[in-house]
Amino acid sequence: MKTDRTKPSAEAPAGETAKSAATSARSVAWARRRRAAAQFWRQYRGHRSGLAGLVILVLIAVLALAAPLITGSDAQSVTDAPGTPLEEPSGEFPLGTDQFGRNLLALLLWGARVSLTVGLLAAFLTVAIGTLVGITAGHFGGWYSTVIMRITDWFLVMPTLVLAIALATVMDKSIWTTVIAIGVTAWPTTARLVRAQTLAVESRPYIERATALGGGHRHIMGRHVLPNVMPLVLAQTTLVISQAILTEATLAFLGLGDPMIVSWGGLLQDAREAGAVSSGAWWYLAPPGLAIAVVALAFTLCGRTIESVLNPKLGVTR
């Protein structure tokens, strides 16, 4: 039956034409998802740490988006910097200036855009690869799964940071290099998680029913397994973002990021090269690292809360 693409629904009125049955089944499915989302939010609200993380993230996202409005778009220009080099914090420059006399507060806001973008893109890539590998390995099984999981295991034992550094060394210095270096090295954990969940979902009877009705591989994976692993993937993404932001900062600090773009890790590298350590310029070093830590922590808090809402047993134990 071609029309039967959504899950069966007891509420779908009998005796209607096949087409309208399909639409109503779909609307029922959507109503169920809305209910699930509302319930999820009610439980999420109950976790104070998760709410705190969310508030921090929204605040930082707004500041990052509004950076051009707050500071003007020429904050990164080295040639017409507003201050003198390495000024201490003052009324005019609340966080002081860097070695070119640029306003550090403005650079910090601009850096937020880069760090968040790279973190999000890298996490997205990581989770996309991990989900694809995990679902196909769980669905097909057999030798395909064996080979894929051996590769996954192998990536899992490689020291992620060393591999990412190696990749970033080999490729050109750009934002995309950082994104790819993180994405290619960080996916195996997600792949294992998703595979386990896929196996659990595929053992349920309705998958058997869908197969019996002629559902192909794409249909089963896309329509039945994917929606069921999505919540888990969401939690995993949030946790991966914080790791990605940390790795991005690390690569930039080692001088492997795009030298033309100001990011938080890059600011720390600039500070170290400008001799901020030996001259005791803590006001130059402290803010970027603090920003990295706060954002990474906020994502971790959100991820853990999502995890514990989805899996109440985990919520108690972790």
Binding site: S242, L268, V277, A286, P288, A296
Partner: peptide, 10 residues
């Protein structure tokens, strides 16, 4: 959540 190199520098 703190970058190790930053903590070291501080």
């Amino acid at each position: 959540s703190v970058p190790s190199f930053w903590l070291g520098l501080l």
